[in-house]
């Protein structure tokens, strides 16, 4: 009902999330990409195309195209804004930490290294929407894997966890 605040809803739809949803960062095509992953959620139709330029295991640039709900699009927007000029290992660490928060880990939810992404912690109370929040990170992990496979650096490929 309009006017009656719903605590769970307002914790889900934090201003920061809505702001990233309406004004997504790094949205668009990346011309000199070295890797591209197209990730879909077949259950609901959300999709994200993540493009990265990776050199010497460093993400030099990354952009995304996508169509989906506020949670999936805000999540990937926040994610891309944190990973420019960061090593692939940092990307994997971020994906793991974020996944822990989505699965309700209270320590992860306090971790300042997650920055804006912490605004998404309310999603963990909506189990059906958790996969929306993780879609961009699934794409990220796949992109990292592909980057390492392409350069023959398979030993440090992330294990399939969580």
């Amino acid at each position: 009902m309009p006017g009656v605040p719903d605590v769970q809803l307002s914790s889900l739809y934090q201003q920061l999330i809505l702001e990233h949803y309406k004004k997504p960062r790094n949205r668009g095509a990346l011309e000199d990409k070295t890797v591209e992953v197209h990730m879909r959620n077949p259950a609901c139709g959300d999709e994200i195309k993540l493009q990265m330029k990776v050199e010497d295991d460093i993400i030099r640039d990354l952009r995304f195209l996508g169509d989906g709900c506020s949670i999936s699009q805000a999540s990937v927007s926040m994610m891309t804004s944190m990973l420019k000029d960061r090593p692939l290992d940092d990307a994997i660490a971020l994906a793991r930490r974020f996944t822990e928060m989505m699965h309700g880990d209270p320590e992860a939810a306090k971790d300042r290294s997650l920055k804006d992404l912490r605004a998404l912690q309310g999603v963990s109370k909506f189990p059906i929407r958790v996969k929306c929040a993780l879609l961009g990170f699934d794409a990220l992990q796949q992109a990292v894997l592909q980057s390492r496979t392409a350069t023959g650096d398979q030993e440090s490929a992330p294990s399939e966890g969580s």
Binding site: M1, D6, L9, L12, D46, G68, C69, S70, Q73
Partner: peptide, 14 residues
């Protein structure tokens, strides 16, 4: 204004 999933989540709360 909003994606169908978000519509559904808000309606579910009602």
């Amino acid at each position: 204004e909003a994606h169908p999933h978000d519509i559904s989540t808000v309606l579910d709360r009602e």
